[in-house]
Design a protein around this nucleic acid. Structure first.
Lengths: 255, 255
DNA sequence: AAGTGGTCTAGACCACTTT
DNA sequence: AAGTGGTCTAGACCACTTC
């Protein structure tokens, strides 16, 4: 059996062997990712076993394994020995703090309470539109909220979402919901945040932020501008957070 | 040949089979890491080929491969197809920005100029000693420097180093040196920074920082507290940086 | 041509979970 | 007992670099 799967001379090209000459395991990684994107398996569910996928794609188990290893490294799936491989979900405690890096200087990190100030549909400002890769003026959802740690307001978030993906997202629906926002997006709207980029700055609190966060105007705040992406690196959320960092800090590890 | 290497009944235990029952490839990863720590191969040099290492450790090439894959994922080594596997170094451009996350809002990122304000040996304050895992009062090197981007002072760093590891580090030696500080530490003192944790906050500039950074007292600054580690997770550096973020930002990716 | 890392296969056995 | 992911081996061939 030839080891090279990329169209050995004479063999009819299968569905895997397109014009691109990527390694087999990367092609299979792409195929599995597309199935995940299509929702063929829902968050929390098991995907087929390595043997089944190997049979489906007509490759060896080792090749499927390498593809799934890469997906697990990107947190798209979670491996559990003896049980199977599962679609990652924002509901499992393991994922809670991957997108919330604010940590108390002393004591344990625990999930904050959310208080929503507003949630309405607006036209995208040009800057937001650029980041979301849509046209200025297109419909977006704008929401503002405060995160409370031990009852104290610490974070003020301003969040823009692609309007087309979040129809029916209302203030009422938000206030009913407990737990991380990305869990709601995943369960109620079928949009899974996979990855984000952030830009951090120190700024002074403006009058409005100062009022909401109950600090003096001009107080130094940590500004965090985030763009979040779903499958295929499609941007779906833009967020601007202002953090009070007198008793909390943004934790980061340089690998 | 039995697939399980962990002391099959009757077989005499080799050097790899200690009391710990870790997978073979992890044991080999540890052994290679210890060789790197001992300086058996210097930064920039090639380590032995996979076949050689497989022979040395009496395992298959695939097992060595998995160990090296893990080391490459942690940036301890760099793989180059057709050439070999090389000990990572802070001198290659690839590594320059792994520990410098400050990026201009517009334009390309380029390496800043360093200006050293002081460098002297002092006794470790208790807080620094705790982070460096040494005793309060032990000798440490304290240095302060400014980083200039396009000629403008943007970063003020205060750096503490374990005294025992950096004998002979003087202000003169620093000012002669061009390029990243971690490159000097690696070449001149044999200390390689592998990994770091950072805590970010927004603070107001105090009088001294304001003077050095040429801003008004109270200006919001991004405070970055870093602890850097070498092999074996030994802390060797504590650093406190103050960043002006009016035209730069701290770039972070949430994987 | 020789040597290196990169991919792929096939088969074995292990550790863990569920039935 | 059966099924899952996890480890290990042995061997083949490919892509790339150097001699």
């Amino acid at each position: 059996m030839p080891a090279n799967p990329n169209s050995p001379a004479g063999a009819p090209p299968g569905p895997l062997e397109s014009a691109t000459f990527l390694p087999l395991y990367q092609q299979i990684k792409t195929l599995i990712t597309q199935s995940l994107d299509r929702g063929e398996w829902k968050p929390g569910e098991a995907i087929p076993s390595e043997m089944e996928l190997a049979a489906r794609f007509k490759v060896s188990q080792g090749t499927v394994r390498k593809a799934i290893d890469a997906l697990a490294a990107e947190n798209l799936v979670v491996r559990r020995q003896g049980r199977g491989t599962f679609v990652a979900t924002h509901h499992e405690p393991r994922a809670q703090f991957r997108f919330l890096r604010l940590t108390p200087d002393e004591g344990e990190q625990h999930y904050p309470e959310s208080r929503f100030l507003e949630c309405r549909r607006v036209r995208a400002p040009s800057e937001v539109a650029r980041l979301l890769d849509i046209k200025a003026g297109d419909a977006v959802v704008l929401m503002r909220r405060v995160l409370l740690f031990d009852g104290a307001p610490i974070v003020l978030d301003e969040i823009w979402l692609q309007g087309g993906l979040f129809k029916g997202l209302t203030a009422e629906r938000l206030s009913e919901y407990k737990g991380p926002l990305y869990g709601l997006f995943e369960s109620e709207f079928g949009v899974r945040m996979l990855h984000a980029t952030e830009k951090l700055r120190a700024v002074g609190a403006d009058a409005d932020s100062a009022r909401v966060l109950e600090v003096e105007s001009g107080t130094p705040l940590l500004s965090v501008e985030r763009v979040s992406f779903t499958y295929g690196n499609r941007p779906v959320e833009v967020r601007r957070g202002l953090y009070i960092t007198s008793h909390h800090h943004y934790q980061n590890d340089l690998g």
